[in-house]
Design a protein around this nucleic acid. Sequence first.
DNA 1: TTGGGG
Length: 468
Amino acid sequence: MENIIENNYKYLALRDAMISPNMKVNLLAVVVESGVPKKSKGTDYVCTLKIMDASHKDPGLSVNFFAEDMGKLPHVKSSGDIISLHHVMIKIHNGDVNAVFNKKYSSFALFGAEPSDDVNPYQISSKFKLTDNDKELITRLRTWLLDHQFDAGANAYLLQMREINAGRYFDLVCKILHVCEVPEHGWILFVWDGTDASPASFDTSLDDEAQNPLPLQLEHSPLSRDVLSTFPRVGTVLRIFAGKFFEELGLKSLGIGQWVKFRNIVCQLRSGLWHGLLTSSCRLRILSDEDTIVMQRQRFYSDRLTSGLDILPLSSFPWPSRTTETDYEGMTFSTLIDVLTHSKVTAIFKCAVRVVAIYPWRVDDFRSPVGTCVYRIRLTLEDPTARIHAYVYGDDGETFFNGYPPADVLTTKINKLLGITESNSSEDECNAPRNPPWVQCCIKSYYLDKSNPWETRRYKIFGTKLIG
DNA sequence: TTGGGG
């Protein structure tokens, strides 16, 4: 895209514009990331677009738009669209170059990027003068773009969900799967990128499991099966607590299924579950489904599904531990979201899970003190997609523990299952940090009340033996 | 005026 002179406007290559501080320039470029309009600290509304052209791709040029109402700001339909900017001011701030769209003397027009799109802009600001030459340049740029891909820009801050750490600010490209408003938390976003967040260690007391059981999810009431059924089979669904930033970032206007890039978000662990937080320093970018990074994430997910074994948690690679054996070695693995969303109440599954809590936790309490003295234990199982309670009961418990071993053997076995190491199990066993291994187990879904099967659905372990 | 990647 060489410099082109026409009747009224000389479009500068971004590279040349960016060495022209305090100059008013005209630019014809591709919008690679579009920010969301919001209220400025002054009297105006503001939004920031990032643009690129052949002369400057990385990291692109930020253009800050100001207008007295939101409707006058650019509303980019899709990243990759083309923008024509007339009389924008190049400025330098802290050594970085950006452009400013001034409502008094600047103007813009937005065009689709496809050669089949209208040669007329889909949005045009009041002062923009569209010339025949503009139309000619747009057509030429569209043709050029057929062979040249711009993306939303990977950078040092961009992480996949599998890479997130507590307390570290980062960017996340993700798909919005669900949004809900809860009284205590405000808005919660449910987002996904096809990878698994890394498993947590637990330092909560198992002694407390009766009064304060480890939660199955961060939202207070579990999502309905209808909602869960819309979630992908693999990959962590990260809960992002948006607070007041839900409205400020314009998240309200986004549709389910939209891919976005959150910039500068932070994650924390609560009860061993990852959640994201939005702050005033966060930014949101709306991405196209054709964005390079979006397509990478989607390809990763479809590869995981088609390669069979990769439905296993990423961190269980190459295989779950041999802490357990099942009677169904040939059975294909399911994820816990598969279990939760299965179309029938009665079903069997084999899953790779971690046992993150147990109740009761003292081996002396594993069996009922009265009557037939059967095992009755509640395990909290998790995989990257969900948590469930699963019971070890009666004969299935006899299989699980290989009969009725003495207390010290049982303790060794259960410590291994819970990831409690010998070194920290001696003194204060119930408070020892634990890092449960990935184990395979068979899960049976059943009901307690035939007249009300879905509401009384339970899960139990069967066909599974703890090696210990 | 405003905002401007960390």
